[in-house]
Design a binder for these strands. Structure first.
Length: 109
DNA sequence: GGAGTGACGCGGC
DNA sequence: AGCCGCGCCACTC
């Protein structure tokens, strides 16, 4: 009896928590590290519920293009961009500049 | 319990 | 090279 779904959620949060400051990653990469590369959407769903946790830097998670797709789920539309810029990640037009440069690939869990 | 939805990703056109 | 459509997985109505 394994609450696999909850476990998956916790795994997602664990990875997101490990994202170093000033770096970003994508939903797909997180899903890959968790062993379910096709569940990238579920990662996003998990992030949607991450607001009830405090240690989840959801602003460091963007889609594979580096677009701040989830910014609308923050307190304000520009909160996500502001947080990233404060950490040293330039954002222009809701997209991370030099995304590959600031991309952080999670190793494992 | 079928159908729709979503903070995604990829392939095809 | 950009836009459209499908697949995938968990969740809700």
């Amino acid at each position: 009896m394994s609450n696999k779904n909850e476990d998956f959620f916790q795994k997602v949060y664990a990875v997101v928590r490990k994202i170093p400051k000033g770096k970003v990653t994508s939903y797909g990469e997180i899903a890959k590290v968790l062993g379910t590369p096709k569940s990238s959407r579920v990662v996003g769903y998990a992030m949607n519920h991450s607001h009830q946790y405090e240690d989840i830097p959801a602003h460091r998670v963007v889609n594979r293009k580096g677009v701040l797709t989830g910014k609308h789920h923050f307190s304000t539309s520009d909160a996500m961009q502001k947080l990233l810029e404060e950490e040293g990640v330039p954002v222009k037009d809701d997209q991370v500049v030099d995304f590959e440069k600031y991309f952080w690939k999670p190793h494992s869990i």
